[in-house]
Every structure is written in structure tokens, then in C-alpha cells.
Design a protein around this nucleic acid. Structure first.
Lengths: 221, 221
DNA sequence: AGCATCGTTAATGCAGCCTTAATCAAGCCT
DNA sequence: AGGCTTGATTAAGGCTGCATTAACGATGCT
């Protein structure tokens, strides 16, 4: 699950990135509207977190322009402003949700997942599939009721597979949702993580489609 | 099913080729407009994927010229441009569909199949024939509701036969849709794949027309 | 600062797929 | 009927891609 964070304040940006990554999300961060625009035209994200106070351009006008160009991604806006008219203007510019600074980090996570859920057409936060249960907001997984401890990568991998609901994901697609644009990898690390997941969850939950990729085995459903 | 990919960026080209091949399509890749024009006049394809940003000529003007010369193939255009007027211009030049970079690979596959469907005059992605069911977008086959695991070649072979809707396909025609121009084969490999398919699906689904080729047995329909 | 955990790399081994080739069966022709 | 041609069948070999393991490096925590 890949998130673009547009935030010029290093401290805030770092905090958000660290927190989201710990929950298995992949975060790319940029500091200006120009950078945001450039990277959005090159990389596919699931959601954008946009701070309105940017150095080179007002976030609102950036958002408006992106929407006019046809960008359909969910956007969560961060702002220090509080006036009702700002909020209305933001929503008209195309924001999907709002968060006032200073915000509670847990609330950010909750709203982010709400947006992702809405975009995926699901309504519940917790994904259950057979004996497996995933709470993406807390980053917790259980199998047959027993909690299973997954690392960051394992969590991201499992979330991506579950999110695809049984469709086949190629290795490249999985890499895209596991790694940010500045941290591409060269090795078979993904294979290793698959291996670890199978060891923790059982070998038959993740199927290999030779020459194609991997898929989550949904059983008969 | 044979696809021509016109894309000068090695990285993108390689990714697309690998993904499409894994789904049983045969992909030939060229990097310039001149090469594209040359090979289109020599080899028969089902669909063309055309990147507008080529080194030697603008893809749009290539497309326009090809259409003027009577080329009727479906063309899926890849472009970084996003303005509405570009889109309109592209469609007037003869594009059948549009995909903005960056694109989701699943979406590319879906649109490609949509184009192929449109060209074939059918409306459903999933081909059902008697007890057999083929989902080309997922590369999955089932017989009487039970999933059947097919390898890459077997899948491509079955898709070609089904796509011909009971018409006879010669061995050379089948080879053309199984192998790209850079990987012709010398042996009876095709016979072997036919054999494997019959073993997995039953012997009567694929008929041999001696001295001519093979056809899919459509039963009474 | 030291420890522990996680992630990546790299090497090795295994398995599946594709092709080849050899042999067998079945039509077709004279 | 016999030979010839074409396709069917089967087994073997090589290649490719994946699984597995171990070790090293990075990162974070106490």
C-alpha cells in the first residue's frame, strides 16, 4: 500500500513516515508542490497526504489542478487553518478528508485507512479470510485466533495479497507496493519474505503461479 | 494472441513484455516508429501498444499515417500527456483506447483484453464453451467448475483455439500465435502441447484435421 | 554503546516446463 | 496390402525460476 506524503516540515514528515511504515505502509515523501506533481505523473499511489502550507505553491491550487487533469486518488489534506470556509473550499478543490494540525497520529491512521477502504469498496477495517484476520490500522494479524507477529515487510506483503482478493500479483506489482521509489531492490528479497510468511501462516495460503507471480488462496469463496 | 509493443524505454518495455507473456500473450517489442512500421507490414498482430514518446517520430503522426494506409488493428496508446485535447487528438488519429502513465498493470491487461474483445465482436471477458471456462485476464481455466492448471504455452494454445471459435487453425497459424518472431521452433513441440491439453481437458475437445490443422470442438452450438 | 531484530544479499538446490527426439499408431495412396 | 506420410505418445535432458538457507549489514531499542 503506497502513500505519497507532501509535507515540507521535516519533523512532521519524518514522524508520519516512521509511524506509517511501522504499520506496513510504504511512504514516499516530497516537500514541494512541483515535486509532488512530478512524482504523481510517474508513480502509482493509493492515497495522497497533502499539507496545504507548501513553500512553492498553495496546496489547494495544486490539488485543484491535479483534479482538473483527471487525478482520481483519494487525498487527505493537512492544514492549520480552521475556518469553515477553508474547509468548504478544500472539499470543492477535491480533498476527500481533512485533518487540522495539530492532529493525533492515531486519528491520521484511522482516516487514512478509511479512505483506502472507501477506494477499495470495502466498509470494514478488518479483513478476515478463512482463519486469517488482519487489522491494518493496528498492524495486527491472527490465525485461528492466535496472534501472529509479522515484521513490517511481511505485513505489507500480506496486506497487498489480501487486498488483491485472490487475483494474481506479479513480483513487480508486489515490489511496487512494498518499496518506495528511492529504495528499489535488486535481489530476491521478496522471495524470502514470501518464505517467511508461509512459515508463519502455513504454506498453502500463498500460491505460486510459476512465471506469473503470487496469489492469496481464498479457498472456495 | 500476438501483440506488438512500441516503446523505447527499456525498463517499461521489459516490464510490459514480461507481464503479458506470463498471461499467455505473445509479445514482440520494437523501439522506434520506423521499426514499428516495417514489422507491421510483415507480421500480423491482434493489437498494438503504442507509446507516443518515440525517438524518431511522434507516435501520433505514425498512427495517423498507418491508419491512412489502411491499418485496421486496435491500438492502445500509452502517454504521459493528460490534457483533454491530447486525448481527443489521439482518438482522431486513430487510437482505440488511452492509458496515462503511470498506469496500473492490471488495468493495461484489462483494457487490452477489452480491445481484443471489441475487435472480435464479443462482449464478455470470460469465454465459456460447454463445460470449459477461460478467464484470459487472470489466466485461469476451469472444467466443470474444477480449476485446471495450465502452463503458459498450454494457456496460449487453448486461448488461440477458443478464439477461433471452431474454425480450423493450421499448425503454422498456431505457432504464430504461440511464438514471437525471434523464437521460432524446429520440432513438434506444438504436438506435445496439444497432447498435454487433451490430457488435462479430455481428448475430444480438440479435433485433429489431418493435413490441415486443429480445431476446437464446439459441440452442437 | 551494545544488543537484538529485521532486511537484503548471495549461493545452492530443487522442481516444473519446454523442447527435442525416438518410437508407435493411424490414414491415405497407389 | 504395403509403404509412406502425418500425427500421437512417451521419455529424457536442459533451462529457468523459485525455495531455501546462511551470513552480513542496517536499524532501532534499551
Amino acid at each position: 500500500m503506497r502513500v505519497l506524503l507532501v509535507e515540507d516540515d521535516d519533523l512532521i514528515a519524518h514522524g508520519i513516515q516512521a509511524g506509517l511504515r511501522a504499520r506496513g505502509l510504504t511512504v514516499d515523501g516530497v516537500k514541494t508542490a512541483a515535486q509532488a506533481e512530478a512524482i504523481l505523473s510517474a508513480v502509482h499511489y493509493q492515497v495522497v497526504i497533502l499539507d496545504l502550507g507548501l513553500p512553492d505553491e498553495d496546496g489547494m491550487s495544486l490539488l485543484q489542478r491535479l483534479r482538473a487533469d483527471g487525478m482520481a486518488l483519494p487525498v487527505l489534506v493537512l492544514t492549520a487553518r480552521d475556518a469553515v470556509e477553508d474547509r468548504v473550499a478544500g472539499l470543492r478543490a477535491g480533498a476527500d478528508d481533512y485533518l487540522l494540525k495539530p492532529f493525533d497520529f492515531d486519528e491520521l491512521v484511522a482516516r487514512l485507512h478509511a479512505l483506502l477502504r472507501r477506494a477499495a469498496g470495502r466498509s470494514v477495517a478488518i479483513i478476515e479470510q478463512g482463519a486469517l484476520r488482519l487489522d491494518p490500522e493496528r498492524g495486527q494479524v491472527s490465525l485461528n485466533g492466535h496472534p501472529v507477529v509479522l515484521s513490517r515487510r511481511e505485513l505489507a506483503l500480506l496486506a497487498a495479497l489480501l487486498h488483491a482478493r485472490g487475483r494474481i500479483l506479479s513480483v513487480d506489482q508486489l515490489k511496487d507496493s512494498l518499496y518506495g521509489f528511492s529504495e528499489e531492490i535488486e535481489s530476491n528479497a521478496l522471495n524470502v519474505h514470501i518464505h517467511h510468511l508461509r512459515r508463519k501462516l502455513g504454506a498453502d495460503l500463498i500460491e505460486t503461479i510459476r512465471g506469473v507471480g503470487y496469489r492469496f488462496n481464498m479457498g472456495d469463496t
